[in-house]
Structures are given as structure tokens and as C-alpha cells.
Amino acid sequence: MTLLKTNAITMQFGGLTAVSELSLDIAQGEIIAVIGPNGAGKTTAFNMITGVYKPTQGTIEFAGKNITGLKPHLITKQGMARTFQNIRLFKDLTVEDNLFIAQHLHLNANLYQAMFRLPGYKKEEKHILEKTAFLLEKVGLSNLAKEKSSSLPYGLQRKLEIARALATDPQLLLLDEPAAGMNPKETEDLTHFIKNIRDEFDLTILLIEHHMQVVMDISKRIYVLDYGVTIAEGTPMEIQNNERVIQAYLGVDEDA
């Protein structure tokens, strides 16, 4: 079943076309990667899908609904969550609060009920705290719950950001370069971690990544962008042997 479908979405900034007629088609449970050289329009594509930008042309369908032009917070509410290329945690707040805030969107209690801690709110808060503890356990941050999120080491900040996205209860998770700046060991851990959460939380994952090892290892299909244009689409095997992709991105082996 198709979860996310973009129909030829195009993003123009003045005279510059950052993404041109991108058509993604992602089925439930898949892990799909978007690759391409710097400035190819990968993050712009993410920003269109998550509602940060409104596409100049084309439509986006998520779980059968047209979500084109919807505000980011409403799209998140529909079940789509993301992480950022340059980590955007709530730095001054604790690890725990970062996850708490991500569950605020599902809160039914109004401000009055929340202020005076009426039974309805208390029940919801209890549920939120339980889920927070569960997610912390899942990503191995339980003992750091009360620490400021900015005090965590880089790798853990990345994990916390993924956990925060999970806290919104998504169907589709968009990861923007999750392995950026990680050492080989951390990268390998991350690959396992992504596969694990996919299975455990019944997720569909769309990721942007430059680590080819990660991409080839976990993605079912790959889209390749170059200067905003989709130059290839296929399984990792197909992509690795595609002439255009090799020229534009993967690179030609000089010795060959």
C-alpha cells in the first residue's frame, strides 16, 4: 500500500529550480533513500514533504490524503516525523523534556485542565511519561534522562533526535543524514538501530544519506537527485551500476 506519493513536485526559489518534478512513491514498511551530490535538492525535497516549503507545482499525498501546502505541525499530526541535517534538539531542556514535548501534539487536555492538573490531564501526562521512559530505554538514554540535551555526545544527540521524532507517533519517519559526522562504529550501530525501529514501530523510513555503506545496506530502493532532477531510481544494485549515477555522484575509479 502506498503511504507517501509525490506527484511531480517542483520547488522554485526565484529563477532557481531546486527540485524539479520529483515523483516519489513509497509503500508501507519500506526503507527508501534519497542520494545525490551536495546542493542536489535532497533537503529541499524533505522540506516540501514536511510542509516547511509549499511546492510551486505538484501535489503530495500521504496515507491517501492530499497534504500539499499543509502547515508542518498539521503534517506531523497526520503521522509524519523528521530529524534535521544539523541537529535541532531543544538544547537547554532535558533529554526527558525533549521527548515530552514531542507528545504534546496528541494532548487532548486544554490549558486550564493542564494548569490545575485535573484528572483528564493527569492521566494523559502519566501516559506521556510512560512512553518517554519506554523510548529512553529503547535508545539507551535512561540514565541521562535529566541531563541537558546539549550536554550529550554527538552520537547520542542524533539518537535522541530520532527518539524525539518517534515520540510523535509517526507512520513515516524522515531522516536527514542520520549518519553525518559519525565514526564507522557509530555508523554501523545506527544502521542496526534504524532497522530495529522500523520493525518494532512498524515504520516506513525515507532517508537522505551520504554514507554509501549505510544506504546500500538498508534501503530497498534509492532515488538519485542531481541539480534537482531525478536521474535514477532503483534497487541498490541497479544504482551502483548506473552510468549516470556513477558520473554524477558515486565517482569513476581513476585506476580503472
Binding site: K71, H73, K77, R88, L89, F90, K91, I101, H104, A165
Partner: peptide
């Protein structure tokens, strides 16, 4: 802390 992150975490 971060408007963009807050909005993408579903906060209006």
C-alpha cells in the same frame, strides 16, 4: 529553543 524543530514536532 527552536521554532523550526517545535513546529515539526507538531506544536502549533
Amino acid at each position: 529553543e527552536d521554532e523550526i524543530a517545535a513546529e515539526s514536532m507538531g506544536i502549533s
